[in-house]
């Protein structure tokens, strides 16, 4: 049944640090690689080397420019994948029971052999976390690398989602957000982690850490700055003569 579990024993999810992400897209590539070679239907591409390439991705990195009231614009890279919501609207709309949320760890998964590819779950998701694979005709989504995190055949340090394992900046963290003492939960409290689109009522498990305040231009005192001030406002000597001579020529800026 595609009813949601009343509660889950654990709430496995990601914490994504918008202050640290450098926008390298390594998580996108490693996600596509792992999830094409392992569990479920491969993430297909259409016309990959042609004029109009498209493909299925479970994780995408957007970039946003934010213009504060004063000061220069700021640029943020914004990785986005399934947030494994507690109140996941994608699960309850599924007519076949293919879409489900696990009671033991809260991971939202798709049983691909029961999916009819109606696309309604993708419509119900506010975050664009689900994509219908054009080759396979079934819905694909982030599995939180369920085939890595419990995989005894992998070395212990690799039992993490591929995106977390590969991130060179340490911008992605994986853990149990249902345990207030876990590293990820403490990180969320310390840094003021927030939900995406809280008004949609989905109660996402994944959290985002806000960017730390940037240095400003104003109010900075550099003791050496006065010595760098221009010493001559008007050119003198040879440059002064050149400036006057060129200015006197027709087309110059002097009358």
């Amino acid at each position: 049944m595609t009813s949601l579990p009343a509660s889950t024993e654990r709430k496995l999810g990601l914490v994504i640090d918008l202050d640290t992400c450098v926008g390298c897209h390594a998580c996108v590539v490693s996600c596509k690689g792992w999830n094409t070679e392992n569990y479920g239907a491969p993430l297909s591409d259409q016309d990959p080397y042609g004029a109009d390439p498209t493909g299925t991705f479970l994780n995408r990195v957007h970039s946003y420019e934010v213009q504060p009231e004063t000061g220069p614009a700021q640029l943020f890279h914004f990785p986005k994948s399934c947030l494994h919501c507690e109140d996941a609207p994608c699960v309850t709309v599924c007519p076949t029971g293919a879409s489900y949320k696990r009671a033991e760890d809260g991971i939202v998964l798709v049983n691909e052999s029961a999916c009819i590819g109606c696309g309604l779950c993708a419509w119900a998701c506010p975050y664009g976390a689900r994509e219908l694979d054009a080759a396979e005709g079934v819905m694909k989504k982030c599995t939180l690398c369920v085939d890595r995190i419990y995989n005894d055949n992998l070395p212990e340090e690799d039992r993490l989602p591929a995106c977390v394992r590969t991130c060179p900046a340490g911008a992605r963290h994986f853990g149990d957000l249902g345990d207030p003492d876990s590293d990820v939960s403490r990180l969320v409290v310390e840094r003021g982690g927030f939900d995406l689109m809280p008004e949609q009522g989905t109660k996402p498990v994944n959290k985002y850490l806000p960017p730390r305040p940037k240095d400003g231009w104003e109010g900075q005192v550099d003791v050496l700055a006065p010595f760098l001030a221009p010493v001559a406002e008007e050119p003198k000597g040879f440059l002064g003569w050149l400036d006057r001579a060129l200015g006197a020529l027709p087309g110059g800026d002097r009358p």
Binding site: L18, H25, V28, D52, P53, T54, G55, T56, F57, R60, V61, H62, S63, Y64, E65, V66, Q67, P68, E69, A73, Q74, L75, F76, K80, A122, E131, L132, A134, F194, D195, L196, Y208, P210, P211
Partner: peptide, 20 residues
């Protein structure tokens, strides 16, 4: 979630083409 800093504008999409 970036609205507290200022006005948000999409700077670069996550991919060169379109998607599902």
């Amino acid at each position: 979630g970036l609205g507290g800093i200022g006005t948000v504008r999409a700077f670069e999409p996550p991919h060169t083409g379109t998607n599902y």
